[in-house]
């Protein structure tokens, strides 16, 4: 259980970086976007501990901006280090995706043909 969430967090990290790179966003917006893309089975608040860590590691910076409705809002943007991290993530992700797909394609195919025999 905890290992899957750990993996999930790593993936979410990458997705957050990608969204932030595209446009300066605030917390709620980020959560909405993730949900729109299909990540809707985890609690929205999960992003804040991740954002705190990414800030600590200086992948993102934040600025307070006045919003039209009410209090100041914290907007996140990507730093140079964050862009690097995003590139690394993409590499890791592509590698992982290719390997997993390879395994699944081959193994499920051979199994099926093996069962046919």
């Amino acid at each position: 259980m905890s290992t899957t969430t750990q993996m999930m967090k790593g993936i979410l990290d990458g997705c957050l970086l990608a969204i932030i790179k595209n446009k300066e966003v605030y917390g709620y917006e980020l959560a909405e976007k993730l949900a729109d893309y299909g990540f809707d089975n985890f609690s929205e608040g999960t992003i804040y501990p991740l954002l705190l860590r990414m800030q600590k590691e200086s992948f993102v910076t934040s600025t307070l901006k006045k919003s039209t409705a009410g209090p100041k809002r914290k907007y996140y943007s990507l730093t140079e280090k964050g862009e690097e991290e995003l590139r690394d993530f993409l590499e890791r992700w592509n590698y992982l995706q290719t390997s997993v797909n390879n395994v699944l394609n081959h193994e499920t195919v051979t199994r099926r043909s093996g069962n046919d025999d």
Binding site: G27, G70, P71, K74
Partner: peptide
């Protein structure tokens, strides 16, 4: 900062019935 950020999130979320 984090409490205010979450407060903002809660307000928005409650507006949308979450």
């Amino acid at each position: 900062e984090i409490v205010e950020e979450l407060e903002d999130h809660f307000v928005e979320a409650e507006k949308n019935g979450k």
